[in-house]
Nucleic acid binder design. Structure first.
Length: 267
DNA sequence: AAGCTGTACAACCGCGGATAA
DNA sequence: CTTATCCGCGGTTGTACAGCT
């Protein structure tokens, strides 16, 4: 199929909101469908990536804890570049995040270690040293096949600047946090809200500029607004709730180009 | 202050597996 | 059984920012 002008590159806040909205509506499985229905000029693949790596409510941003660091090191030694697999053992971290982290931090460390000593017999990190066995001890490894980490009915979360909320003290030590296991992916139970901290690179400025925490209410306000608007204007909603199966049949015919309701809103 | 370099992270690409038709 | 489509994964690239000279 010829995709006219598929958008690439960085996601805008607006796109984020839109994607979150539709994922909450339709779930996180049918990405091509979501991509089409949402009117985003993105591929399903791109939508999925954005969701999984950035918009997903369970994501835990901010610096890796020493514990996580060790875990990554350990699991990488065990499994190699099986990032998604490793990510499953690090609740709130994505394969992409871990992969990036590894590339920038750990690989260097690992190499240093390799040179310094024979592999893994003692992973020491100044403050802590743990044998590989010990690591496995406090992080029980449970294999799960699927990594569908959420219920889209759940809480919305952090995203681009509008979603970002910064817990100033970064992450609570994961060791002490209760873990909720969902099918295949575990989250930290933060008592309702999810812990999100600033993305590292831009942290300083953004945190300064906004000690500004975006409470969930605000986010939902955004969504509600959009939803109302959609309800009123988007052709999609004329067909709801049968939309889903209808789309399956004639998605492209019926909604060749859903005009972007959010832009309309903004403009 | 300006330029350079390294780091961190977001996003894209291509491939392979799973599943539906 | 074959083919098409979708999804997920791992590798790679691009870009912004921070720190150093």
């Amino acid at each position: 199929m010829v995709q006219e002008e598929t958008r690439k590159g960085p996601w805008t806040e607006h796109e984020d909101v839109q994607l979150v909205f539709y994922v909450n509506l339709f779930g996180d499985r049918r990405w091509d469908f979501i991509a089409k229905v949402s009117g985003l000029k993105r591929t399903g693949k791109s939508c999925r990536l954005r969701w999984v790596n950035y918009l997903h409510p369970g994501l835990k941003r901010g610096k890796m804890t020493p514990h996580e660091e060790r875990l990554v090191l350990e699991l990488h030694a065990k499994w190699g570049n099986r990032w998604s697999r490793i990510a499953r053992k690090l609740p709130g971290r994505t394969d992409n995040e871990i992969k990036n982290y590894w590339r920038t931090h750990m690989r260097k460390k690992a190499q240093e270690r390799k040179q310094a000593m024979s592999p893994l017999s003692s992973i020491s990190n100044n403050s802590s040293s743990a044998s590989s066995n010990a690591l496995v001890d406090y992080m029980p490894v449970v294999e799960t096949k699927e990594r569908s980490f959420y219920d889209t009915g759940g809480v919305l979360a952090p995203s681009s600047s509008i979603f970002r909320s910064y817990s100033s003290s970064n992450n609570p030590p994961m060791d002490s946090m209760p873990v909720i296991e969902t099918k295949g992916q575990s989250f930290y139970d933060t008592g309702g809200d999810l812990e999100i901290s600033a993305p590292k690179g831009k942290k300083d400025k953004e945190v300064e500029a906004s000690e500004k925490v975006y409470p969930m209410d605000d986010i939902w306000k955004d969504i509600d607004l959009s939803e109302n608007f959609l309800t009123m204007t988007s052709p999609i909603w004329n067909y709801c709730p049968d939309l889903q199966w209808m789309m399956e049949e004639e998605e492209s015919k019926m909604f060749p180009a859903i005009s972007d309701p959010f832009f309309a809103l903004a403009g």
